[in-house]
Simulated scan of single mutants.
Amino acid sequence: MNCPNCGSQNVQLRHIGRKVGSSIGAAAGGLAAMEGASADAVIGSLMPVVGTITGGLIGFIIGVGSGATLGAITGESLDGTVFDEYCCPVGECTFNTQ
């Protein structure tokens, strides 16, 4: 693939939607998981101290991970439609395939 402006072959995928979506999803998942982590900590408190901490951490990690994954999937659908999919560092431009 060549840049439509300068003809360079040094074209790169941007993944802006996926990057932004995963960041927003991780933040939202982390906030939601903080609420869920307290419930996981209560369940983990069947084994005092270690179980409480482990239960809370596992709940938080699962929330952040699932939020980031769902955000990346959603954001990836925006790449090429809302955001330009490719960039050319030589011509300093962004574009989509025609």
Score class of each variant (00 low, 15 high):
1 M>T: 03
22 S>W: 14
20 V>K: 08
47 M>E: 09
11 V>Y: 11
1 M>G: 09
25 G>L: 04
65 G>Q: 11
80 G>M: 08
50 V>Y: 12
74 T>K: 01
79 D>C: 03
32 A>P: 01
50 V>F: 09
90 V>K: 09
60 F>Q: 14
53 I>E: 07
23 S>M: 13
84 D>G: 04
33 A>W: 02
6 C>K: 09
11 V>S: 02
24 I>K: 07
10 N>Q: 04
76 E>N: 12
87 C>W: 06
61 I>R: 04
33 A>E: 06
8 S>G: 10
6 C>T: 07
93 C>I: 15
22 S>D: 10
17 G>W: 02
5 N>R: 12
24 I>F: 11
57 L>V: 15
91 G>M: 05
53 I>D: 01
62 I>W: 07
9 Q>R: 15
6 C>Y: 03
44 G>D: 10
46 L>E: 14
80 G>W: 00
24 I>N: 02
79 D>E: 09
41 A>G: 11
15 H>P: 01
45 S>D: 10
97 T>A: 06
2 N>K: 15
22 S>V: 09
21 G>Q: 01
35 E>I: 11
95 F>M: 03
76 E>L: 05
17 G>K: 01
74 T>W: 11
8 S>V: 13
14 R>W: 00
85 E>S: 05
66 S>Y: 06
90 V>S: 14
26 A>I: 06
51 G>F: 00
35 E>C: 02
88 C>N: 05
57 L>T: 13
16 I>F: 05
7 G>D: 06
28 A>T: 14
46 L>C: 13
48 P>E: 06
36 G>K: 15
77 S>F: 15
68 A>E: 08
11 V>M: 06
4 P>V: 03
15 H>G: 05
40 D>V: 11
62 I>F: 11
